[in-house]
């Protein structure tokens, strides 16, 4: 416990700021119905394009919907896609990385080459093409109808997986050769126990760092795809579609329409980026600046 409190004291204010933004946005997403003062979907034409005031804190849009309520609800779509894609990417990538590092030989080569191949697929173009071809309708899996975002979560998740595959592989490959793993084998431990119990825990810190930074990228991707009309479908609130609607306000001057949804994206992304940097400094203070780019 003392060890942790000491480590946490080393986190500087930017890390705490990042954590605060992340908590704020997660809180908005989870408790949206309790925070939002208005219905985010109901059209009230008599209230349209009202400037920010005491009733509508961030003004209203062309359909008279409260911008503040829509921004709060919009956190749901952003975080669902961002976190969902990272979870899927981590599941695929980490299993692949562990498998390749532990098996070695031909299986290793094959898996890592497939990871190279997936890493060479341009994400946004494919997201646009796939959703464009399949249509923006819901995804029917048995009795469950998932919204259009499910396609994006799955695709972005698969295309995130090489990041996880590579960091897991890099650490796992070193750990596999360590003496304690040989000792565990000699003790007669099962392979599954060694991989999940001994190797995986050693890979966790870089995985968590990458996951935090990737959520930020996932959020921007969701907003971008929704912005071109292929993500979250109206009237459901999403920061990307709100910005798309705001384009008509560029000329007429309702500045609150383009400003607040964009700020929401930026604050969330800043939050995850600062948190990711802080987590990295905490786990591995000597590591270089991140090279994650999208």
């Amino acid at each position: 416990m003392n060890h942790w409190s000491q480590a946490l004291r080393a986190v500087d204010w930017t890390g705490w700021l990042g954590a605060a933004f992340v908590v704020l946005m997660l809180g908005s997403a989870v408790f949206a119905p309790f925070i939002a003062p208005f219905d985010p979907i109901e059209v009230r034409l008599e209230d349209r394009l009202a400037a920010p005031d005491a009733v509508h804190w961030l003004g209203t849009d062309q359909a008279g919907r409260d911008v503040f309520s829509r921004v709060i609800y919009g956190a749901r779509a952003s975080l669902t896609v961002g976190i969902g894609a990272v979870v899927i990417g981590a599941l695929i990538g980490v299993s692949a990385g562990l498998f390749a590092a532990y098996k070695g030989g031909l299986g290793d080569q094959l898996v890592m080459r497939i990871i190279d191949g997936i890493a060479a697929i341009p994400l946004l173009v494919w997201a646009i093409a796939i959703v464009g071809i399949l249509g923006v309708g819901p995804v029917q899996i048995g009795p469950v109808a998932l919204p259009n975002e499910a396609k994006i979560v799955l695709l972005v998740g698969v295309l995130f997986s090489p990041v996880f595959g590579r960091v897991t592989y890099a650490v796992a490959q070193r750990v596999v050769r360590a003496d304690f793993v040989k000792a565990r084998l000699l003790q007669g431990a099962r392979h599954r126990d060694i991989v999940l119990g001994d190797i995986l825990p050693n890979c966790l810190s870089p995985i968590i760092v990458q996951a935090t930074l990737l959520v930020a990228i996932g959020i921007v991707i969701e907003a971008s795809v929704s912005f071109v009309g292929l993500g979250v479908q109206p009237p459901s609130p999403s920061w990307g579609t709100m910005l798309s609607d705001a384009r008509s306000a560029i000329y007429s001057g309702e500045w609150w329409l383009p400003v607040f949804p964009g700020l929401a994206i930026s604050l969330t992304v800043v939050g995850f980026n600062l948190l990711g940097d802080a987590v990295r400094d905490l786990f591995d203070p000597r590591s270089e600046a991140r090279t994650l780019v999208a």
């Binding site: 930017t14 930020a216 921007v220 907003a223 971008s224 912005f227 910005l243 705001a246 384009r247 560029i250 500045w255 383009p258 400003v259 964009g262 994206i265 930026s266 604050l267 992304v269 800043v270 980026n273 600062l274």
Partner: peptide, 17 residues
């Protein structure tokens, strides 16, 4: 920190404005 967090398309809208 700022540059990494501003979505390009939002920046575009603000620049147009």
């Amino acid at each position: 920190v700022v540059g990494l967090s501003i979505p390009a398309f939002w920046l575009g809208i603000i620049l147009i404005r």
